[in-house]
Amino acid sequence: MPWTPLHSQLHQCLIDRQLLPIGTNILIAVSGGQDSLCLGQLLRDLQNRWQWQLAVAHCDHGWAQDVGIADRVAQVAARWQLPFHCETTANLPETDGAAREWRYSALVRIAQATNSTQIVTAHTQTDRAETLLYNLVRGAGADGLCALSWQRQLTAEIGLVRPLLAVNRAQTGDFCREYQLPVWEDDYNQNLKYARNRLRLEIMPQLAADFNPQVESHLARTAELVRADVEYLESLATDWYQQALDLEGVRLDRLILAPLALSLQRRVIRQFLAQALSKMPTFTQIEATISLIDAPNRTRTSTFSDGLAAEVAGKWIVVARSDRLSINI
């Protein structure tokens, strides 16, 4: 098959961003849809240039609409002459969140079994734009508007890479047709009872028609710009968090936090509460703890999860069980 502009685009992206170094052991997550088939074909075509070790992974949710997909992906992997690995589950709730959490845990297990150091998924510019808009209407802050990163660590040894974030879904569709790849059309993706599908099938096309034909690329660019800002702020917050944390790692020095900008205070407090609570802190919990920075001694928040609360103890902010606060502090 011919070398296409998409091959060149991905090849240059990998060079510029140093996403998948020469000789990397890569696990390609293939759902059977057009984006993942496009990615798999591209990586297979580039394999010799980059000397990668490639394998294909598929996650079968055990849902009725998934019957037959795994066999189709196995056939494509055989066409690519790549090892194929599949994990299947049962009784998985038919929600995006549950499916995503299980898929990533399954992919990590497969990566560990195959000695893969990078898991590659086919999230595109289109996904990035939709995710930004979806998170915006849900009330997400700047972190939610980052909307998919090029890479991140899943474990100490295994990374996640999304090399198609500058490629849109129209491009992957054209590529699959040119290469005659057997795309699986998932009925789930057409069901308008799911918010993401309504966003993709109704709202995004309407925005493009009524406001800006380039809305997708502009939203994706916004996500890229916001991510750079968020990464900078988060690194600053981590430095201040380490300075404000006591030697035992259980108290924050509010005198150090007081002069900081509110955006940094929020991030430091979030990092602190994330270590203390069993769940990620909510916006309300973070704001309540921030109010303690300038509060009188012994001021306390309402109870968080697990019976915990935060309290002012001299220059410190302490998180402990609410029935033990104000005792031996």
Rank of each mutant, 00 (worst) to 15 (best):
A55S: 15
V56Q: 07
V56H: 05
A57G: 11
A57D: 04
H58K: 07
C59R: 09
C59G: 06
H61N: 12
H61R: 03
W63Y: 04
Q65A: 14
Q65T: 14
V67W: 14
G68D: 11
I69R: 12
D71P: 00
R72Y: 02
R72E: 13
V73D: 01
V73W: 05
Q75H: 12
A77H: 02
R79I: 03
W80R: 10
W80K: 06
Q81V: 05
Q81I: 05
P83A: 02
H85G: 05
E87P: 07
T88S: 15
A90H: 13
A90Y: 13
N91H: 15
N91Q: 15
L92C: 08
L92E: 08
L92V: 06
E94N: 14
T95N: 07
D96K: 10
G97H: 10
A98P: 03
A99E: 09
A99H: 07
R100M: 08
R100N: 10
W102N: 01
R103F: 03
L107R: 04
V108I: 15
Q112K: 10
Q112P: 10
A113L: 13
A113R: 15
T114H: 09
N115E: 15
N115C: 11
S116G: 03
Q118K: 10
I119A: 00
V120S: 02
V120I: 03
H123C: 05
T124D: 05
Q125L: 13
A129E: 00
E130K: 09
T131I: 08
L133S: 03
Y134L: 14
Y134G: 08
L136P: 00
V137N: 11
G139W: 04
G139C: 06
A140E: 01
G141H: 02
A142Y: 06
A142G: 02
G144P: 00
G144M: 04
G144C: 06
C146W: 00
C146Y: 01
C146N: 05
L148E: 04
W150H: 10
Q151Y: 12
Q153L: 13
T155K: 04
T155E: 02
E157F: 06
E157V: 07
V161L: 05
L165A: 05
A166D: 15
R169A: 07
R169W: 03
A170L: 10
T172H: 07
G173L: 12
F175P: 09
C176G: 01
L181T: 01
V183W: 03
E185D: 12
E185S: 13
D187A: 14
D187Q: 12
Y188A: 14
L192E: 13
K193Q: 14
Y194N: 00
Y194K: 01
A195V: 06
A195S: 14
N197Y: 09
